[in-house]
Design a binder for these strands. Structure first.
Lengths: 250, 250
DNA sequence: CGCAATATTGACCATCATCAATTGGCGTGG
DNA sequence: CCACGCCAATTGATGATGGTCAATATTGCG
């Protein structure tokens, strides 16, 4: 873990863009966000940002890279709860839940901005509407958890994977990180399995079938969606739960 | 749906008690809570409180009874996301997410207090700490979703059911609705299956085996835990995720 | 008493897990 | 520059958890 250059303009903008994708942000609020003091660090792929049981004193903003939240279980089992893109605060909840009940880690080399809770509280105190928007953000997090529960509980493996590829397409779109249904999605098949309650072997077979059916092609680094409507139909994907206020069809 | 008597003292107290189980509440805040204007209605078992797609203008506080949140899927599939006990606001998120992305319904005859969003906002504006506590409450909701994801994704059917029985024991305990590991839990086996991603048939078999192994006995209306430690061990139950600030071992 | 919803049980089956082996990609060091 | 090593991807064979279908028993209630 090493210190690094301050966030660039485009890195800062990603947070604003993310927030604008789920609500309104005033000019004053933008200014305040851009003045948030943060300590930037670069973490390599696979490093923990926070670990279950810890009591963090800072929030972490993703500037570049890719992050997940997860919990480990006995016998090497793992459940991944969420994926996070630049502009996200993957551990925003630590503002109000002192003890981490799960862990947060990078899935790719990432630049992260660490912001003291005190600054976040100050920001929210001065800009209650921004506080509401951050609350809203954590509520959308929860909505995504629910949608994943639906998938894991009631959808087939094919549907779960199709659904995930659709969700990530819209979420990357919201922060300007897609190009024509293609996006960088640097996860292994094992990680995808741990997110969807499947084994690596099964994930592998299903990705093959999606490829053979010309729905989507993916590898370790990226996803290319060939048939958006087909994938959406297969995965029963309805983006309402993302509560995006801007357009939702990339 | 009919109007009903105003909330009794003990019904009002349940909300305070619930909030106190997850954080501190000042005397002023208690007073303000007790003065919240609410319209009380009694709903029968199985009635919807809010439906996916709606845009509610009120929050719903459970005074007595039992409520769940769920989503329906094609071909009659259903996923239940959460169960809610007296003192809970099952749709608190509607304060910041205008459109319901899922439905809320009673699982038993229930007395509900409906509170206009405007009053809730006013309350939060006047008592920011109470606002934080409500935010915290929705974050605990999300923590429970995550824990359910772990269960559905990575635990066996036996473990999932054991885990659920443990969780509900602690949550009822927090609002004073357990007696020596026994509590009212008025759900059908079908509903339990829809919460855990299982079929009725399988739930039935597992409840039988829990009974045979002398871990817990349950029926349509209530649960009796015979071997708390055994059940906890089987379900890998660790109550950290409930973020209860008071005792957590009934 | 009789319906309707729920619980229960049996027989059979499918999705997905497990186990095991092989291949492919890629960075590192000799 | 190539061999080695490591991790991820891939594929095959086999098996088990849990699903499906269907019939019967219970229970609650009007």
């Amino acid at each position: 873990m090493r210190s690094a250059a301050p966030p660039s303009r485009s890195e800062r903008d990603r947070l604003v863009r993310k927030l604008e994708s789920i609500g309104d942000v005033s000019a004053d609020e933008k200014t305040a966000i851009n003045e948030l003091p943060m300590q930037v660090r670069t973490l390599a792929d696979g490093e923990d940002i926070a670990v279950e049981g810890e009591r963090p004193s800072q929030c972490c903003l993703i500037l570049t890279g890719f992050v997940c939240r997860y919990k480990l279980l006995p016998e090497g089992r793992r459940q991944i709860f969420s994926f996070h893109t630049p502009g996200d605060f993957p551990d925003l909840q630590s503002l109000h839940l002192k003890t981490m009940d799960h862990s947060v880690a990078t899935l790719a080399e990432s630049r992260l901005g660490f912001i003291e809770h005190t600054y976040m509280r100050e920001l929210i105190r001065c800009f209650p509407d921004l506080g509401s928007l951050l609350w809203r953000d954590t509520l959308i997090d929860a909505a995504i958890f629910r949608e994943w529960m639906v998938g894991i509980g009631r959808r087939t493996a094919h549907q779960r994977i199709a659904h995930l590829l659709c969700e990530m397409a819209l979420r990357f779109e919201a922060v300007g990180l897609t190009h024509d249904h293609n996006y960088q999605f640097p996860i292994t098949q094992a990680e995808m399995g741990d997110a969807l309650g499947l084994t690596v072997v099964h994930v592998n077979r299903i990705l093959r079938s999606l490829r053979e059916e010309q729905l989507a092609i993916s590898n370790r680094t990226s996803v290319r969606i060939l048939d958006w409507e087909g994938l959406k139909g297969l995965g029963e994907f309805d983006p309402t739960y993302l509560h995006q206020t801007k357009g939702t069809s990339p």
